[in-house]
């Protein structure tokens, strides 16, 4: 354990577009965040070693061409699987938000593949369209480092391909039993038809976590869709950290304190 600020590698690629605000959220939580292009990692797979947190932010990597996150996931799977596994095995943290979650799932980092390939995926919303709305979420902080001490969250989702689907009920049961389906939409707020209302999944260590909602879009009180309903005396006075999503970044930073 160290008292210095943890270093966060916010990985960007062609089409990443939430890297700036995600890096800002980490900095506000007390980390040093650097936005680094995937090409630098491909040139030097040892580059993540000086970081404690690896974050795959939201966006449309490679335009989500073929399928969301698929091309970057294939690139990572092919070139960086070992580097990322050793990052995780060194006790460090990995977070994937939205497109980052899609990449973590589709590269097999979050849920191991078996002989038939991926056991779960994130695919087209039941509505068939991109949707931006807010959702109430229930969290299980038992296993997932990022959700420690969290029971509920209110966060925006903004995606077209966020419906979590597993290959079989058996896979789902196994994940659920292991406490890995760590973040769920309240059923009436499920924005995409995800099975068992899954909004976020962690790996068996609890240190790798992916979620569709955007915690970095709710770190300030004025980002809440109904903050104007607060009485004038309760109105947020200064750019302070009052949003629900901030706890995820705080937890990540605290983990290294």
């Amino acid at each position: 354990m160290t008292t210095t600020k943890p270093n966060v590698l916010v990985l960007r690629a062609p089409g990443t577009n939430c890297d700036v605000e995600t890096a800002y959220a980490f900095e506000l939580a007390g980390a040093n965040a650097e936005r680094i292009h995937i090409n630098r990692l491909l040139e030097d797979p040892a580059l993540p070693e000086r970081f404690q947190i690896l974050c795959f932010p939201g966006g449309f990597s490679f335009g989500d061409d073929v399928a969301s996150g698929r091309i970057l996931a294939a690139t990572i799977h092919h070139h960086l699987t070992d580097a990322i596994r050793s990052f995780r095995d060194a006790g460090k943290l990995i977070l994937g938000i939205c497109n980052g979650f899609q990449i973590l799932i589709k590269s097999g980092i979050l849920i191991d593949e078996d002989e038939n390939g991926l056991r779960a995926t994130l695919t087209w919303n039941k509505s068939g369209v991109y949707t931006d709305r807010w959702a109430r979420l229930a969290a299980d902080g038992e296993k997932c480092v990022f959700l420690r001490g969290v029971n509920e969250l209110y966060l925006p989702v903004a995606h077209a391909e966020g419906r979590f689907v597993a290959r079989s009920e058996t896979v789902l049961d196994e994940l659920e039993k292991a406490g890995r389906l760590a973040l769920r939409y309240l059923p009436e707020d499920n924005p995409n038809g995800a099975v068992r209302d899954v909004a976020g999944v962690c790996d068996e260590t609890g240190r790798v976590f992916g979620l569709m909602p955007h915690p970095e879009r709710h770190i300030d009180a004025t980002q809440h869709p109904r903050w104007t309903r607060l009485a004038p005396s309760e109105r947020p006075a200064a750019p302070e950290t009052a949003g629900d999503g901030f706890v995820l970044f705080k937890n990540a930073v605290e983990y290294f304190r």
Binding site: E21, Y24, G58, V129, D132, A158, H214, E216, R217, Q223
Partner: peptide
């Protein structure tokens, strides 16, 4: 259908 919240 529009992301009206990206960039935070």
């Amino acid at each position: 259908q529009y992301d009206h919240e990206v960039q935070g």
